[in-house]
Amino acid sequence: MIRYLYADQLLAFPKLRESMLKDRAVQFHQRLKWEVTIDANGYEQDQYDLLNPLYVIWETAAGLHGGSMRFLPTAGATMLNDFFSHLNGQPVSDDRIWETTRFCISPNAPDGSRVAALLMLAGAQLGVGLGLSHAVGVFDARMIRIYRQLGWPPEVLGTEGKGREEISAGLWEFRPELLAQLATKAGVSKDVAAHWFARAFGLERTMIAA
């Protein structure tokens, strides 16, 4: 199931939190060879984890991390504005745009592409439910294929590097009609996604009628 948890709320789920930080170490340090910091516990964490971000996590039946991503509002500190603003030419700071980072699929997930679909659905549900206009994020060339397959490719704001080194900044628009399509790809019903959202935020309806 999908959980929406702020960092302080995630502390109440130690198994989920620890498995997420270890899976992030595998994906970003071992596989993608990004310059990320791994601590003595084998957890990958950065300064944005300290800002009490909102995590969207796919929790397995065993209570472990299956996949996740992280959100922060662009009115505050974001990775894009701090490190990658040259990709876009100007900082992105808007109350209806949130930054998404650390899109991670557990190496133990039996069906990684389904987990990716579930996470994209949960991200879309978050934005639509809260009346946000876009998510913004930096992604590498490998990811664009996944976004396209799911039918929700970002609008590319800027790109640098070539081949495997290529990274881009992109904007994903939150549109209510995406939910049905992403739910189909994820193999769950749209109502299930609405339930995840309502359970986390206690809102049965959307905040802003779109």
Binding site: Y6, D8, N52, F201, G202, L203, M207
Partner: peptide, 11 residues
């Protein structure tokens, strides 16, 4: 104070 989505007090 630790969150950033709008909050209905009832919740």
């Amino acid at each position: 104070y630790r969150q950033f989505q709008p909050i209905e007090w009832k919740t």
